[in-house]
Deep mutational scan, measured.
Amino acid sequence: MEVRTIKVFTTVDNINLHTQVVDMSMTYGQQFGPTYLDGADVTKIKPHNSHEGKTFYVLPNDDTLRVEAFEYYHTTDPSFLGRYMSALNHTKKWKYPQVNGLTSIKWADNNCYLATALLTLQQIELKFNPPALQDAYYRARAGEAANFCALILAYCNKTVGELGDVRETMSYLFQHANLDSCKRVLNVVCKTCGQQQTTLKGVEAVMYMGTLSYEQFKKGVQIPCTCGKQATKYLVQQESPFVMMSAPPAQYELKHGTFTCASEYTGNYQCGHYKHITSKETLYCIDGALLTKSSEYKGPITDVFYKENSYTTTIK
């Protein structure tokens, strides 16, 4: 009895394709271990004539594949690729409408935090270190965002349907971005203890939790000093293409032309909904596939993004 075979390709990165001759009487799992086709788990399936010449994702289970996976995804987590594939199996079914010149995501599976993050990423200057993220990001900007969303979920250790947080998501993504040249110098002034300067680099240099107003941050924000008295913390120097200011959701007025974009969060910790506000020729609110415009805006804002380049204080 002759062994019926077909020729397929296996890959971990969709760049390096490895030619395989597979036995049609055995499952993919018996031949390769966990195997995925377009995100779908085909591990328990036997090869079919229609699979001839198709590319299958496999887990990096030998040295060659491990090197290829690390170079593309910059992670050695053995569960990463499987999590990416199972997320992709959902995100490829989502709709990605162009809204006001940006790629958004039609609401499904509690994905409003991903839509808000995706919209924000198209408006701030950011370059990702893992080629996987950078490639998928370019495709997302062009309207094909399924891979990018699935990668975000995998890097953030999230599953489809789980509630997510924009600030946490951005923080994970910033860790995989090139923020080497970003720098922030802060000064804390206390009447009792004097003053202390701190220099922050990388992710810490672009994120701040405690106030939404970048102007206020430049002037000074009140913080408790270690001595128990009130101290003032203010920005001395900022070198970065953008800054992200966050605070627990509270009524906040966004003035046209003073910011790049913002995240609105309605609801409580267990259950809520994100919308995205962007400042173009007027203010726009993007909620999944829905767009509304207004000249002014007041609502429960939790993150505001500002364009920056270089700032030095005039406070002496």
Rank of each mutant, 00 (worst) to 15 (best):
G220R: 03
S171P: 03
N89F: 10
D109V: 03
E52A: 11
T19N: 14
P248F: 12
K316S: 13
P34R: 05
E162F: 02
F242I: 07
Y252M: 06
Q230Y: 15
Q270P: 15
I105G: 04
T266D: 12
T226P: 14
I45L: 09
N157G: 13
H273Q: 04
E204Q: 06
T55V: 09
H18C: 13
L65Q: 12
F56N: 05
S213C: 08
P300W: 12
H273T: 06
A108L: 09
N178W: 06
E52K: 10
A108V: 11
S246K: 02
Q122F: 01
C271E: 15
R141Y: 06
S79V: 13
T159E: 14
T258P: 03
S246T: 07
Q238V: 01
H90N: 07
F80W: 04
C193V: 06
Y274I: 09
E239M: 08
E281P: 03
Y274F: 13
Y208M: 07
I6D: 03
L153P: 01
G267Y: 12
G164C: 05
Y138F: 12
P300I: 14
P60C: 07
S294N: 13
D109Q: 15
T76C: 15
G210S: 07
M245C: 11
I15F: 13
K218E: 09
M244I: 02
M26G: 13
V188R: 11
L290K: 08
G143V: 01
V189A: 14
G299F: 03
A231E: 02
E68D: 10
S246E: 03
I45Q: 10
Q123A: 00
D135C: 07
P34L: 07
G161M: 00
D287L: 00
Y269S: 13
T313N: 13
H48K: 15
K293I: 10
K92Q: 10
E204K: 08
C182K: 09
C285I: 09
E253V: 14
I124E: 03
V67M: 15
N268T: 15
L17A: 04
N268S: 08
Q175M: 05
V58G: 00
N178R: 12
T199I: 08
P78G: 15
K46M: 13
Q222P: 11
I315D: 15
M244N: 05
C225L: 02
G272S: 05
T266I: 14
L151K: 01
M244V: 07
R167T: 07
L254Y: 03
K46V: 13
R141W: 00
K46Y: 09
T198G: 05
T11Q: 01
Y306D: 04
L200R: 08
K293E: 10
I277H: 06
V203H: 15
E168C: 02
A231N: 02
V185R: 07
V67A: 15
T278P: 02
G220A: 03
K293Q: 14
T120M: 08
V206F: 05
P224N: 14
N309K: 15
P78E: 15
K218C: 08
G220E: 08
G299N: 03
T192R: 14
Y284D: 07
E168Q: 04
L254R: 02
K106N: 12
I15R: 14
L37A: 10
G29Q: 08
T312P: 14
K92N: 14
Q175A: 10
R141T: 13
F80Q: 00
C193I: 01
Y137D: 02
E2G: 11
M26Q: 15
I223K: 07
N89R: 07
L186N: 03
Q216C: 11
T11I: 08
A40P: 04
Q216T: 15
Q216N: 05
G53F: 11
L173A: 03
Q195H: 14
K191L: 10
F174M: 12
K280H: 04
A115Y: 01
Y138E: 15
F305D: 05
N178F: 01
T258H: 11
A117C: 15
T302D: 04
K191Y: 09
N49I: 15
D38V: 08
R4S: 09
V22M: 10
L163C: 09
H90P: 01
D41Y: 03
G202V: 03
